[in-house]
Design a protein around this nucleic acid. Structure first.
Lengths: 125, 125, 125, 125
DNA sequence: GTGGTCTAGACCACC
DNA sequence: GTGGTCTAGACCACT
């Protein structure tokens, strides 16, 4: 779980995103139990209140459900996985295009730069 | 100059980015004078102090230089343009890849999704 | 913390210097927490925003680091102390020499004047 | 005439100091005519009003005198030279000592650092 | 008018 | 309470 404490994006929203990504990656599956907020707080070195808020947000988005006394679970709806994955992918792609357009970069160059970085990028720092 | 007053990203940083993008797009050139902070404040419906902060940030990054009583200017260094452009493009590409990887999406699919969106993007819903 | 409200040097920069000097003198150590900007503001009879600006400047110079909601700390890097001390000493010495040279004073006389003042300095006027 | 346009010290005061230093160095002598404010403004790339202010300040300090229609002259008082020189030297030495003490540096080390820099300093950037 | 500092006070996210 | 942004308005030095 990657949290950036200096990002202007609130930590609780970063936590929500991280859960969604774990789902998309298949590291988490519908029906899975997620750690209690206290446990999560310890693991992530974050205030329990912040985790609570993240869990509330996920609940609100219909991503999780809480069973009294049993804990919090990813909603057991198989569709959820592909919806989240494609939603987040779509938004990442669109944001990328917007950003590149703002730099005056044309579609061909976008694709080119993407290819270049995918091939060579990881090599250098 | 697009400012999102609801973004968690501070306005003054958004303003810095906007100047960089205008430079990358060629709408601003090395040596150009940028509006005084008071003028900019009026145009963008923002407090002059907020603009000052953006301008100071640019100064600190070496993007602009200030002449007492005359105004603020894009640094008159031809190299600045391509540096900024490639820097920002690189960071956008890398962020995109990181984001997609976090979703468990492989390079081939990244490129595919990018192509699809570039061609059909505007037809949404 | 000595602040000169009539100096043309901005208060926030004076505050940065004061912290560096306290470090050099050993009154502050790497890892130490420094007062919150609000507390410091009260102590120094200065506006909290002015202190914030000083703290941000230190952060930017790599002198301190901030933990969200916990406070601001001198960077816990033992090297920082000697770096700051020698940096500031070097700059003071160089400024002194430049100043004296500008008065047409030769090295021998510089050393002599320094000795004289160190011995008799306090007996003034 | 070295002017630092980014220094917090007002330019007109920097100009006064520069004249004093030229006197101390012997490049200017009591009775010498100094350039008209317009000429000085052109040479130093400074606004004529700023030069005016510097000249007024020097007049006020009794350093210069103005003869209607003839220009501004260093006061023709031979004593002026040594007074200014020793005054400025004294203040430089004292400021140096204060600065070094603030860093917790003892007299012996002050003298040592001064010697070192006088011998090796100029060699390295 | 231009850059720049400072004050005062509101508001927010996180601990 | 802690860091941090934003607004509003005063004041200053320099052009």
């Amino acid at each position: 779980m990657q949290l950036n404490f200096n990002s202007p994006k609130p930590i609780y929203l970063q936590m929500v995103d991280e859960v969604k990504k774990a789902l998309a990656r298949g590291e988490l599956s519908p029906g899975d139990k997620i750690p209690s907020h206290k446990e999560r707080a310890q693991i992530s070195q974050v205030n329990p209140n912040t985790v609570m808020r993240a869990y509330q947000e996920m609940e609100r988005e219909g991503l999780t459900e809480t069973l009294r006394g049993q804990g919090t679970f990813i909603k057991n709806d198989p569709a959820i996985l592909s919806i989240i994955r494609s939603e987040m992918a779509k938004s990442a792609v669109e944001q990328f295009i917007v950003e590149m357009r703002a730099l005056g970069i044309e579609p061909e160059e976008m694709a080119q730069l993407l290819q270049d970085t995918l091939q060579n990028g990881p090599k250098e720092g």
